[in-house]
């Protein structure tokens, strides 16, 4: 009984810590908005807000799906490379095989899911650590994309009806936004409102415990990696639609942007703790920073530096009150040692 009550306590503590973290992030975001709005006259315009949304859409999708992956205590370094492979696959199916766009898109999603399934299979069947497996497929997928195109072939001249989804507005907002909202909602529900989501967190807290509690750990793990692959496929399609070209270097480095957004959003890299809305806030904080610097006429290189700073500040803001009360207790103890008597 005692153990159970402690674990409940632990739960409420971590929930509160997360809420604090999200508040801190929201604060950071508010500061960014106010500062950039003051520095750049065009920053707050609808046009610019839509720019931010469009530019962060693909990384946002990857960050969304990276959240459940990291919640299980895993990681997926291959999503950026898989995005590249799916983009090439999409271009190849459309231009060389001659499939219509919707079928080529379905093909890209299938390639993504297959890549994710390969990750999942290696992790669950061969019991290799996700870091190692996805480090391998990180090179494998990118290498495959480069081999298929020999590094030089570029797919382009896509029909305007397809480019619409990356460049135009639909219902008054960037065309990819409704899709993004639907995906975000789906992932949120999966993580926060289903038994599957609960089991993912349980696996992150304690893999053995989850196994003994009767959770089909292997199946759940495979699910999150397939989902990650599928999302890389979707992001690839939106990427190609936005840029109007598919090349083997599509999505280079996106895995790290996604992981940064997730960690900034308060998800513990050790798994078990984190929220999808935190990830969205993390993505937004980075995206606004990147865009706002241009409007404030500051060098873009500052973005990397400030993102790092942001990460450290946000993380320490969320643990500071806890630390602070511990210090106070320690101080009080030192002044009247009688307190420590059992």
């Amino acid at each position: 009984m005692k153990g159970a009550s402690r674990s409940v306590e632990c739960w409420t503590w971590s929930r509160r810590a997360l809420a604090r973290h999200e508040t801190a992030l929201l604060l950071v975001l508010a500061v960014e908005f106010i500062a950039f709005n003051a520095l750049g006259p065009r920053f707050g315009t609808t046009d610019n807000l839509f720019d931010i949304l469009r530019h962060s859409c693909e990384i946002g999708l990857l960050a969304l799906v990276m959240t459940p992956v990291i919640l299980t205590g895993g990681i997926d370094l291959s999503v950026g490379s898989l995005l590249g492979l799916c983009a090439i696959g999409f271009g190849k199916l459309w231009r060389d095989v001659g499939l219509p766009i919707p079928l080529a898109a379905a093909g890209a999603l299938a390639i993504g899911a297959a890549g994710g399934a390969l990750n999942g299979w290696l992790i669950t069947r061969l019991r290799l650590p996700p870091l190692i497996v996805t480090l391998g497929t990180f090179s494998l997928f990118r290498g495959l994309a480069e081999a298929i195109t020999r590094g030089v072939d570029t797919f382009t001249n896509f029909p305007a009806s397809f480019l619409f989804w990356g460049q135009e507005r639909w219902l008054g907002v960037p065309a990819q936004l409704p899709l993004f909202v639907v995906v975000a909602l789906g992932i949120w529900l999966l993580v926060h409102a289903t038994r599957v989501g609960r089991s993912l967190r349980a696996m992150g807290f304690s893999p053995e415990g989850a196994l003994y509690a009767g959770i089909p750990v292997a199946r759940r793990l495979a699910l999150v990696y397939v989902l990650a692959g599928l999302m890389a496929g979707l992001a690839a399609i939106l990427y190609v639609a936005r840029l109007g070209q598919a090349r083997a270097d599509a999505g280079t480095g996106y895995e790290l942007f996604a992981i940064t957004a997730v960690v900034l959003g308060g998800t513990s890299i050790f798994g078990g703790r984190g929220t999808v809305h935190g990830t969205l806030l993390g993505t937004a904080a980075i995206a606004v920073l990147n865009n706002g610097l241009v409007h404030a006429r500051q060098p873009r290189e500052l973005a990397g530096l400030l993102t790092g700073l942001l990460l450290i500040v946000a993380l320490s803001l969320s643990v500071l009150p806890e630390r602070f009360s511990l210090w106070r207790k320690a101080l009080r103890r030192r002044h009247n040692p009688a307190d420590t008597a059992p």
Binding site: R42, D47, G253
Partner: peptide
């Protein structure tokens, strides 16, 4: 990142610059 050049140009469009002079890394994109 090949997408970066495009993002920079789109930012400049929103910023409202008068002229853009570009050295193009990837022609079509």
């Amino acid at each position: 990142d090949p997408a970066k050049q495009n993002e920079i140009i789109e930012n400049w469009i929103t910023l409202g610059v008068d002229a853009i002079a570009a050295a193009c890394e990837n022609k079509e994109g």
